[in-house]
Amino acid sequence: MDIKYSVTKGNLYIYLSGELDEFSARIGKDRLDGIIDGNINAQNVVFNLSKLTFMDSTGIGILLGRYRKLKKTGTPSFIQSPSVSVNKVLQISGLYKVMPKI
């Protein structure tokens, strides 16, 4: 999994690409936290999943963990452009209730 980010108009966009499973999550988690900590003043955080080709329930755990982290600073977080298969996993998990899809 590859992780990139950009800041546009005070919003932090995090782009995940490749496959998010238990193996890639171990490395990805610290990188995500590093990006969030380095942009602590972001008004919103948007996880763009358009290039994420695979995600299983490990991904739900990782996204929920980041939601909880961002909630502490009152920063809303969102999901953007998931593929059909990733969207299915996110829907089943109910993640959109806390991280709406935009």
Binding site: S57, I60, L64
Partner: peptide, 15 residues
């Protein structure tokens, strides 16, 4: 504590 979602079997059941 390891941020596991607990949704693994639920996803298998659905898929």
């Amino acid at each position: 504590d390891e941020e596991r979602s607990g949704m693994g079997f639920t996803i298998i059941k659905t898929f």
